[in-house]
């Protein structure tokens, strides 16, 4: 530690401060979006210790209380504290957003690589993807959930499937342009086997745009999840998710608008954080597009 301090003339703390400053100056959107998300993740993980009460048990005496000192966000028609339910709801949103992003990128990557590199598969796979893209994603998700029964898993799958075609198209487009590059042709000429070419030469090109795409999938997945809950086909009602809380608030909207407003605001802020982070990542990872967008 002292050796480093002597060499750089700076202590650890001040170097970290400098790093933070330069990051904030160069990529403000990424830092802002990232910090908001870290706060949200902390809320999800530490939910029980954030002055929350029981988010599930009914408490009829306190029904439909407006926001105040005792109940910061008010209570619902069963007397449950909206603040506690909203904080706990962060968990569902983040878990589903993250899983949908990871799953759609994983499947999209495999299908996209196959379509981009194997000509026979290309025609078939892309027709299937075109067809899937033509079905409105929200309808597809609602239909899939209501047909297979609502659970955390089916909701995640139903949200993931409509997102896959966009990832496939992205990966395929990159593969098609990269495979004509001299270094890939050189690798082919040198007799490198196909799996190795895909992994060593093609895959790395897809990673930066995929990271950006993953953030957009995550944002849209969180919105769809809330919507499913809102329409009454989302995760089971005993799990407090933002969509479920808002669905219960629909009937009492004129009496108790806070039941919809607080989880709605939490959802909008989280999605905003993910979108801002995504834009920041896009600007950082691909400066060419950054100038344009």
């Amino acid at each position: 530690m002292s050796a480093i301090t002597e060499r750089t003339g700076l202590g650890f703390r001040s170097r970290m401060t400098n790093l933070r400053r330069s990051l904030l100056a160069q990529h403000p959107t990424m830092v802002i979006g990232g910090s908001m998300l870290i706060v949200m993740t902390a809320c999800a993980i530490f939910a029980p210790w954030l002055f929350t009460g029981d988010p599930i048990t009914f408490n009829p005496i306190d029904r439909l209380k407006s926001p105040g000192d005792t109940f910061w966000f008010g209570t619902d028609m069963f007397g449950r504290d909206i603040y506690s339910r909203t904080i706990y709801g962060t968990r569902i949103s983040l878990v589903i957003g993250l899983s949908a992003a990871v799953l759609s990128v994983a499947f999209g990557l495999v299908i996209g690589l196959a379509a981009g590199y194997v000509r026979i598969l290309d025609a078939i796979l892309m027709r299937v993807m075109d067809g899937l893209m033509a079905i409105p994603g929200i309808l597809l998700a609602i239909a899939l959930v209501s047909l297979s029964g609502a659970s955390l898993l089916t909701v995640t799958i139903a949200i993931t499937i409509p997102e896959i075609p966009r990832v496939v198209r992205l990966v395929r487009a990159i593969v098609l342009s990269v495979r004509e590059e001299p270094y890939v042709e050189a690798a082919v000429a040198a007799g490198t086997r196909l799996p190795l070419i895909l992994i060593r030469h093609i895959l790395p090109n897809t990673i930066p745009p995929l990271i950006v795409q993953a953030t957009y999938v995550c944002a849209s997945a969180m919105l769809t999840e809330a919507l499913l809950g809102f329409l009454g086909v989302g995760t089971p009602p005993e799990i407090p998710s933002w969509g479920n809380i808002m669905a219960e608030g629909r009937t009492y909207f004129q009496l108790a608008p806070w039941i919809i407003f607080f989880p709605g605001a939490a959802l909008a802020l989280t999605v905003l954080a993910v979108n801002v982070l995504g834009d920041g990542l896009r600007d950082t990872l691909d400066p060419r597009i950054a100038k344009k967008m």
Binding site: A219, L227, F261, G264, N275
Partner: peptide, 8 residues
């Protein structure tokens, strides 16, 4: 505008 849920 992208982030605010339509129903909210």
């Amino acid at each position: 505008g992208f982030s605010i849920p339509v129903f909210v």
